[in-house]
């Protein structure tokens, strides 16, 4: 049934996409630093991580009804959104400082302790930024598709996939100092894509079979309803399976294509997930009531406006 819905729009999905990707990039860069030492990720990638989060934040601000009042989102410590806003801010800071160690002309480029501290900061905040959309959405008890801890895993995986893919692409443009260090990244992303595939199938399966009728109904839309085409062909095939295969091939071009497709898949998934939130647990009779309200374009709404 069609009717006007008033929820989050595409800009929030784009925020989730960029922030998640950025978070994933910081996380990967930080871990790489700890495990392999400095210079294993592209400096471009390191900067992009922080930038992506910042771009995400911009979209978040644009999604607000009153963007100029954006500073107020820091005000309620109990709100996840506030928590996310703080974390994103810190992550941007940590990410930028960490990335700056790659610019050797800067005086602090050999302050190892600070670098390690920032890498740690990137790991912690990157992890949070990568997962928090999942936490945010999963807590919505009346949004049957989101509700539950599953969203956390799905977002974490997708953030890691997109973060990894972004690192691959960054390295293709501006190689890392020690390009060999992360040569396994395509394989790792391919593995993550494989897990992502399994988790999505599992997520839908659990929703459809195990839980309430409302959740089952919401999940069935992904396989049969208006989401199914975009989900199955767009996300599962082109955004997950195809890049998985491509990433297993040698050759920078093919791998870069795979990484790019994985990014598209990540974006598509976020759009679909955010829009699936429109599906509230309807109260008795509510759906029919709303379906019969005007959509806003009707003639009578435009008449008699001036005296």
């Amino acid at each position: 049934m069609k009717h006007k819905e008033e929820g989050w729009g595409w800009m929030l999905a784009v925020d989730f996409f960029f922030a998640g990707m950025g978070g994933g990039m910081l996380l990967i860069a930080g871990i790489a630093d700890f495990l392999l030492g400095e210079g294993n990720t592209s400096v471009l990638g390191n900067f992009l991580g922080a930038f992506c989060i910042a771009i995400g934040a911009c979209f978040l601000i644009l999604e607000l009804g009153r963007p100029l009042q954006a500073w107020r989102v820091f005000m309620n410590p109990r709100a996840i959104l506030t928590f996310g806003a703080w974390t994103m801010t810190i992550a941007i800071g940590a990410g930028l400082i960490y990335a700056s160690f790659g610019l050797k002309m800067l005086p602090w480029s050999d302050w190892v302790i600070l670098r390690k501290l920032m890498a740690l900061g990137c790991i912690v905040t990157g992890l949070i930024v990568a997962t928090y959309p999942g936490v945010l959405l999963g807590r919505h008890k009346s949004r049957p598709f989101w509700n539950g801890p599953g969203m956390i895993v799905l977002f974490l995986f997708s953030s890691l996939v997109t973060g990894g893919a972004a690192h691959i692409l960054s390295a293709a443009i501006l190689p890392a100092y020690y390009p060999g260090g992360l040569s396994g990244l395509p394989l790792m992303v391919a593995l993550l894509l494989g897990f992502q595939l399994i988790f999505w199938v599992g997520y839908l399966w659990v929703k459809i079979s195990g839980t309430t009728e409302r959740e089952a109904k919401a999940a069935r839309k992904w396989l049969k309803g208006n989401f199914s085409g975009k989900f199955i062909y767009g996300f599962l095939l082109i955004g997950t399976l195809l890049p998985l295969v491509l990433l297993l091939f040698p050759g920078t071009g093919v791998i870069a294509l795979g990484a790019f497709l994985a990014l598209l898949g990540g974006l598509l998934m976020r759009l679909l997930v955010v829009y699936s939130g429109e599906d509230r647990t309807w109260l008795p009779g509510e759906e029919c009531y709303r379906a019969r309200l005007p959509l806003g374009t009707e003639e009578f709404l435009k008449a008699w406006n001036t005296k």
């Binding site: 008033e6 929820g7 009042q69 954006a70 005000m75």
Partner: peptide, 14 residues
């Protein structure tokens, strides 16, 4: 104080 983030819109089950 409202910034129009719609978090409450999504959070309200009713």
């Amino acid at each position: 104080k409202c910034v129009g983030c719609k978090a409450c819109v999504m959070a309200c089950p009713y």
